[in-house]
Design a protein around this nucleic acid. Structure first.
Length: 302
DNA sequence: AAGAGGTACAACCGCAGAATT
DNA sequence: AAATTCTGCGGTTGTACCTCT
């Protein structure tokens, strides 16, 4: 009669334990996890064994390499479609586990939250040695299982608060923020500005009464120089109905709409909307993500 | 060189649904 | 049909490593 371990071991797995687990899976397949402990093979719970197998020992896992730009794009797309169904999303990404996707997403989310919450440094020291404001740069991303060099685009994004400017680097184009303008009062508006990847721009900003400098909306002639016909689709900055301009006009033949949609992928932090219309845009942020923002009085209140 | 802060990742927990007894 | 066990999922936490100052 084989004994059952009385004390359950937790924490990191040793290579010996991995070996035992692998032997079990080879013999019985990836199931009967609880029997591993009941047979006295390992002092681990069935759950722990299963997790170890699924996340680390399963064959064909991509371990130790970062998400490629393409994987990142896919995750964003699928998260928008399915919400936080990490297991489902992971099935679309070969060699990635639900844990991988979940970790990727939450670190990405934390990064964004920190960007939005972080109080400015007093002397702008963080900017030392960093890319100049708004300068588009090409970042080399080490590819996975391949010799080819993948390029992803990143840009810097300035936010000013009480006169101090912070530069945030937005890594990879999929990181661009597509806010839902409807759920925000327009005066709480924080815009992520589209920047043409191939050119350098200075993003103009205006200072709100609460001290935030918000970037202005993209200028169609500057930011989308190839599509001057779209100029009249972009209303004056901070027009409360500006986003409706995209909806009211039939822009199906206009690439500009498509371009905006493609270039401003959702962060999908809430979930499910794929729309770039005003009814969906700010849904892409969790409700609490803007809590730090002071209410900016409307012009009539000032 | 050291400390602080940020990031990535492994692993745990609680819960829910499915399967089994 | 009810109770128990197993399995899978999503959220969260702990920590090692990295980068910056």
């Amino acid at each position: 009669m084989e004994r059952e371990f009385e004390n359950i071991k937790k924490g990191p797995w040793s290579s010996d334990e991995d070996e035992v687990l692998l032997r079990h899976v080879t013999k019985y397949g990836p199931r009967e996890w609880s029997s591993i402990r009941s047979k006295g093979l390992l002092p681990r719970t069935g759950k722990s064994c299963r997790l170890r197998w699924v996340n680390k020992l399963r064959p064909n896992l991509k371990t130790g390499c970062k998400f490629t730009a393409e994987e990142e794009r896919l995750v964003i797309e699928l998260q928008t479609q399915f919400g936080n169904k990490w297991a489902k999303i992971a099935t679309y990404l070969q060699g990635r586990t639900d844990n991988d996707v979940k970790n990727f997403w939450s670190s990405r989310r934390k990064k964004l939250e920190r960007m939005l919450h972080k109080p400015p440094s007093s002397k702008g020291q963080k900017n030392k040695g960093k890319t100049p404001l708004n300068q588009v740069q090409v970042e080399k991303v080490p590819p996975c299982n391949s010799n080819q060099v993948e390029e992803s685009l990143s840009f810097s994004y300035p936010i000013s608060y009480m006169g101090n400017t912070e530069v945030f680097e937005m890594i990879n184009l999929p990181d661009l923020i597509k806010p839902n303008y409807q759920q925000m009062e327009i005066n709480d508006y924080l815009s992520a500005v589209e920047v043409e990847a191939t050119t350098l721009h200075t993003v103009p900003s205006f200072e709100s009464s609460s001290g935030y400098n918000f970037p202005l909306l993209p200028d169609p002639l500057v930011d989308f120089p190839l599509f001057p016909e779209c100029k009249d689709l972009v209303p004056e900055p901070f027009d409360p109905n500006f986003i409706d301009g995209f909806e009211q006009k039939n822009c199906s033949e206009c690439v500009c709409n498509q371009k905006l949609e493609n270039r401003l992928p959702t962060l999908g932090l809430e979930g499910h909307s794929q729309s770039t219309s005003s009814s969906g845009l700010f849904n892409d942020f969790p409700n609490d993500i803007f809590e730090y923002l002071d209410h900016i009085p409307a012009s009539s209140e000032e």
